[in-house]
């Protein structure tokens, strides 16, 4: 039998971090599915990787930058109509519990 790489509690925590709500059914289904994927990923344990540098990006390029010169900006009428709620030219959000991190 395979080990369980992720518990329902961990799935619930991850869902919280990702701002998702799961029903009881979803929680057990996702736990099982994520477990299967993570179990499959265990196959890399067979590899000797201690001396291998991680590769976060496929390109070896560096130092791509732009000049500090202004470029055209949007008008509020370009994007505010797409917003779910607006007041005084600003995006309206419901009451925030807790201070900013």
């Amino acid at each position: 039998m395979m080990s369980e790489p992720i518990s329902p509690e961990e799935v619930a925590h991850v869902a919280y971090l990702a701002r998702l709500r799961l029903t009881e059914d979803e929680l057990s289904r996702f736990t099982e599915q994520l477990g299967a994927i993570l179990n499959h990923a265990e196959d890399v344990e067979a590899l000797e990787l201690d001396d291998t540098e991680p590769m976060s990006h496929p390109l070896p390029i560096e130092n791509t930058m732009r000049e500090d010169t202004p470029s055209p900006m949007l008008k509020p009428s370009d994007f505010l109509p797409e917003a779910p709620a607006v007041e005084d030219g600003r995006f309206l959000v419901p009451k925030i519990l807790g201070e900013e991190p």
Binding site: E87, D88, G89, R90, F91, L92, V93, P94, K95, I96
Partner: peptide, 8 residues
């Protein structure tokens, strides 16, 4: 607060 407004 009742709600908040965001300016970017």
């Amino acid at each position: 607060a009742d709600y908040s407004l965001v300016d970017y």
